[in-house]
């Protein structure tokens, strides 16, 4: 930061040149404004209309009427609840698993590189492939590996996606996102100064004391960052749900992304889908506001960037 400020014009450089260079971000800003902000405003506009693509002739300005319609639909609350259940349970489980794995990997042992490589692979695989893989090869009630395992133990073969749809969706997303949490927390652990650890041990601190009073406070910023990033991504999960359950059975695993997709591209109700989209934006914005604050604080403390 300090370096950059030192480059402010001091009269020594050509001021005209300096201002040309300051304009360099403008194309990027214009591009991003057109591609991201224009659709955002249009979403707000559509949310005020009655507009079904199957009956385009009946398109009409409604004012805010779509919003009470969305809010009075009991399905909408199920959808919001599903979104929160998926997000919160995935984040909680990946946080615990990710921390444990990061601690396990933050040691010296033979084959460490290979182990880390194996562990991050689920995160690199495209969500549709993971979902197709789990749905067919693992969860299939007739031929899947879980069914085989159950049969071996003399248990009835489970139909995971039918009987435990939410659990199955969460399992697959947890599988994908645990490596993410692990990677960031591992980076955090590796930046912990060794002398702090030794000082704690010399004072007679056991592993639990060490974790609680040295490791955890140090990890706090990394945890905040990883949790917030993950929340934003998981709130918008789509591919896994589309492939695994199509939001079902019924709407048991329909989250906001999937619900809006159905409203817009199966029922073709542009107005209501847009109103639901506005709720999705509000939800994400709450998280983003917290996120920006955490990032800013990081910059101020000089911990990050």
């Amino acid at each position: 930061m300090a370096q950059a400020i030192a480059l402010q014009p001091t009269g020594q450089y050509d001021d005209a040149l300096f201002s040309v260079r300051r304009l360099l971000p403008v194309p990027a800003i214009i591009f991003m404004a057109i591609v991201t902000q224009v659709p955002l405003i249009v979403t707000l506009g559509y949310s005020l209309e009655r507009w079904n693509l199957l009956r385009p002739a009946r398109r009409k300005y409604l004012g805010l009427d779509n919003y009470p319609d969305v809010l009075s639909d009991p399905d909408f609350f199920t959808i919001i609840a599903n979104t929160l259940i998926i997000t919160i349970s995935v984040v909680a489980v990946t946080l615990v698993l990710g921390t444990l794995l990061a601690l396990l990997l933050n040691r010296d042992f033979p084959g460490k590189g290979l182990v880390r490589t194996m562990l991050i692979t689920p995160f690199l695989i495209m969500p549709t492939v993971s979902a197709v893989l789990w749905k067919n090869v693992l969860f299939n009630p007739a031929f899947g590996l879980l069914a085989a395992l159950a049969a071996m133990l003399g248990l009835p073969r489970p139909d995971m996606l039918q009987d435990f749809p939410m659990f199955s969706v969460v399992v697959v997303i947890v599988w994908q996102w645990t490596p993410f949490m692990m990677l960031i927390l591992l980076a955090g652990l590796q930046s912990l100064a060794q002398d702090q650890i030794e000082a704690c041990q010399i004072d007679g601190g056991g592993p639990l004391v060490l974790f609680r009073y040295i490791v955890l406070p140090h990890l706090q910023r990394y945890i905040e960052l990883a949790v917030l990033m993950e929340i934003l991504f998981i709130l918008s999960v789509f591919g896994v749900i589309f492939v695994l359950t199509s939001g079902g059975p019924g709407i048991q695993t329909t989250n906001l992304s999937y619900g809006i997709y159905q409203e817009a591209f199966q029922r073709w109700d542009i107005g209501e889908a847009s109103a639901m989209g506005v709720f999705a934006i509000i939800l994400a914005n709450i998280v983003v506001l917290v996120f920006v604050r955490v990032l800013r604080r990081g910059q101020a403390e000089g911990v990050a960037v």
Partner: peptide
């Protein structure tokens, strides 16, 4: 931004 917030437009 959630992709669903901009997908319709």
């Amino acid at each position: 931004l959630p992709p669903v917030g901009v997908i319709v437009p």
